[in-house]
Structure formats: C-alpha cells, structure tokens
Simulated assay, not measured.
Amino acid sequence: MYFRTLTIFIIISKFSGILSSNGDRSPFYQNCLKTCRKANCTDDGRSFKSAALKQQDVWCQLLQWSCREDCQYHCMWKTVDGFQERGYRIPKFHGKWPFVRFFGVQEPASAFASLLNLATHIYMHNEITKKFSVKSTPLVLFWHGFATVCMNAWTWSTIFHTRDTPFTEFMDYACALSMVMSLFIAAIVRVFHRRKKFAAALLALPTLYYVEHVRYLYSGRIDYDYNMNVNVFFGVVGSVTWLVWAGGMLVAGRKHAWRVAVFTIASGAALSLELLDFPPKRSWDAHALWHLSTAPLPLLFYRFVIDDLYYLQNSKIRDKNYLKQT
C-alpha cells in the first residue's frame, strides 16, 4: 500500500534530470513526428484535420487523445520496430517504456492492477462496515476514513495509468502520498489510541505538512528527488512504528498482530519487482507486476484491522465490567 508511492519516486528520481530518452531522441522518431503532425494535426497539435480524425478509434476519442499524442504513440512504435530490426534493445520514450494501448488505455496492465487494488480495498471496507457500527467500537470511524483515502488513491492510480496527463499525474502523486501518510498516521493513532490529545498533537505537524506539500506539487514542475525523500521518510517511520508495536503486542500474547507485521514485511519485499525495470511483455512491465503483487496485501492488513477492532471491543467490555465491580 504505502510502499507504492515510495517505489514510484525512487524509480522516477532516476529520470528527474532527463528530458528525453533514446527513443524520442532518435532522428527517426523526430522526423516521423514532424511528418505526422504536418499531415494530420491542426497548428496547435490538439485537434485532427477532418480526414485524419476518421483514423482514430472511438476509444481514443472517448479518452481524448489529442492529435499530437496520437502521433507520438504511432511514431513511438515505428521507432521501436526500427530499433529491433537493427538488433537494438527496445528504447524508452520520455523516460518510459512503450506500452500497447488497449481500448485507448495508455498502460492497460498497470491500470488493471490498480483496479484490482481498488477492488480489494472496497471489499474489505464493506467487511468492516458489516461487522462494526461506528458507535460500538473504538477507532471504527478512523478506519472508515483510512479506507476512503486508500480507495481514492487507487482510483487516481487507475485514472493516471489510463491517461497520463499533467493533472492525472499530480492527482496520482498527491493521493498516493496521502496513502503513505495515512498508514503512518494509522500507526500513531493505534499506538496512542488511549491518549487522544497526545496523538492529535503528534499528528498536527505531519497533517499540515501534507497540505503544504500538495500545494507545492500543484504549483509547478515536480521535484522528484524531494518527493522521494518525503515518501521515504514517512514510509520508513510508519513501517518501523508498526513493526515495533506488533512485536510488543506479540510478546504480550496478542496474536492477531502478526498480520500487520507480515503485511509490512511483504509490502517491502514486493519492491524488488519494481526495481527489475524490464521492457514490457505486451503491457506487463515490472511496475504493473508490482501493482499486481500488492493487490492481495490489503486482505491481510484489513483482516488485522478487523481482529484488532474485536480485541478493542472486548477490552472496552472488560473495562466496563471492571468499573461496575469496583
């Protein structure tokens, strides 16, 4: 979950100073692009000339692929064919591998895997809703909010992989960071749930920082190195907090804590898929496979949440009985 954003920024930071890649830098690609735009596009590159519009399928029209973007896509694959005919490796374009569009979707495998993650969160959120009322158990309302943040983040991940635009990029990064910070906040809230004022004071600064950071993301070009550092910090602090707390709970005999410990370790292990960074097989690259590998992990985490809510519910009943006896 929260390791998703951490890895995105580690990988993207490699390209933070690069404006072009082998593919889009090649003369063949540049010449193809000029020829295509001259023949098919209006002067601004957004619209098609009337005859050229008929060549674009209905799915690309629905997803609002501009003429310039359509030319970039077709010239990209012509360039890939040229590289492979000469025995060269598949090149990247603007720091990204080439992907085959599917019904107009730009990165279909990553979009599909993001959708699976979204579905997992929706399913487990419904499980919490069915099992607990907001008033009956401490922290239920918080976990509803947590699930909403995660569902929103995976929604924008799906949209971003469907159509990569400056706005969808901003929303994906901003919402992904909200998921990183939500798991960090969740660790603080769970550890200090009996000391609400202290937890609120502890979280005030990170919350304000997130608001300021999102404002910064929206203000201009993203500094990927800076974003990486932000996500690394909150990701590491959150994971360490969960692991230390889970260890203490297990020592105290609270066996359900093993799930959050395994979830945290498994999420970290899934990063190895992203670091492979190989050319896509059809539409499946390392990033898409990593998203696919994280899809079942929320089942483990929310199972911990449900067990922990039962534990807190029973603790609340025991506390009431103790007060009655005294």
Rank of each mutant, 00 (worst) to 15 (best):
Val149Pro: 01
Phe83Lys: 05
Gly247Ala: 05
Tyr29Cys: 02
Ala261Cys: 04
Ser136Gln: 10
Trp284Val: 09
Trp59His: 08
Cys75Gln: 13
Ala176Gln: 09
Trp77Met: 03
Arg195Gln: 12
Leu19Gly: 14
Ser267Val: 09
Tyr210Asn: 01
Asp164Ile: 07
Thr168Ser: 15
Leu309Cys: 09
Ser182Met: 09
Ala199Asp: 01
Asn227Arg: 03
Asn314Leu: 03
Val214Phe: 01
Ile265Val: 15
Leu183Phe: 15
Arg190Glu: 11
His74Gly: 00
Trp154Ser: 05
Thr148Arg: 12
Thr165Asn: 08
Ala295Phe: 11
Glu212Ile: 02
Leu203Asn: 08
Thr129Leu: 13
Ser21Arg: 11
Gln84Ala: 03
Asp223Thr: 01
Thr241Cys: 02
Arg282Glu: 10
Leu250Gly: 04
Phe83Glu: 06
Ala200Lys: 08
Lys196Trp: 09
Trp258Phe: 15
Arg163Thr: 01
Ser66Pro: 00
Tyr123Pro: 00
Thr155Ala: 11
Ser133Lys: 15
Phe184Gly: 07
Val191Arg: 07
Tyr88Gln: 14
Asp223Met: 04
Ser315Thr: 07
Glu212Phe: 06
Met171Phe: 12
Cys67Lys: 13
Gln313Val: 02
Asp81Val: 03
Phe304Lys: 12
Gly82Lys: 14
Ser26Cys: 04
Arg163Asn: 02
Gly104His: 14
Ser114Asp: 05
Thr168Gln: 11
Trp258Val: 09
Ser21Met: 05
Pro296Ala: 14
Leu33Phe: 14
Asp44Glu: 11
Gly235Asp: 01
Ser283Met: 10
Leu312Gln: 13
Tyr218Ser: 00
Asn117Lys: 08
Gly238Met: 10
Ile185Cys: 08
Asn152Ser: 11
Lys135Thr: 07
Ser136Trp: 06
Thr79Cys: 07
His125Cys: 11
Cys67Ser: 12
Leu63Thr: 06
Trp77Asn: 05
Pro206Leu: 03
Leu205Cys: 02
Ala269Ser: 13
Val191Asp: 00
Thr35Tyr: 11
Thr294Tyr: 07
Gly268Asn: 11
Ala288Tyr: 13
Leu217Tyr: 13
Asn152Val: 14
Asp70Ala: 11
Asp223Trp: 06
Val214Pro: 00
Ser13Leu: 08
Ala201Asn: 13
Tyr73Arg: 12
Val251Met: 07
Glu85Tyr: 13
Phe301Cys: 01
Ala199Phe: 10
Tyr224Arg: 05
Trp97Asp: 02
Gln30Pro: 02
Met181Arg: 09
Trp97Ser: 04
Leu309Asp: 05
Cys36Gly: 09
Val100Pro: 00
Pro206Trp: 12
Arg282Val: 08
Leu276Gly: 00
Gln64Asp: 06
Ile90Phe: 15
Trp143Tyr: 15
Pro206Ala: 07
Gly247Asn: 05
Cys71Met: 04
Ile122Lys: 02
Lys324Glu: 04
Phe28Gln: 06
Asp308Tyr: 13
Asp285Trp: 06
Phe99Pro: 01
Asn152Arg: 12
Val240Met: 09
Lys324Met: 08
Glu85Ser: 15
Thr155Pro: 00
Val100Leu: 14
Ser13Val: 03
Thr155Cys: 13
Val244Glu: 04
Ala187Pro: 00
Ala187Phe: 05
Asn31Glu: 13
Phe170Cys: 01
Trp258Cys: 02
Phe48Thr: 08
Pro91Asn: 10
Phe170Ser: 00
Ser267Tyr: 10
Thr264Ser: 07
Arg86Pro: 00
Met124Cys: 07
Cys36Tyr: 05
Thr35Glu: 13
Arg4Val: 00
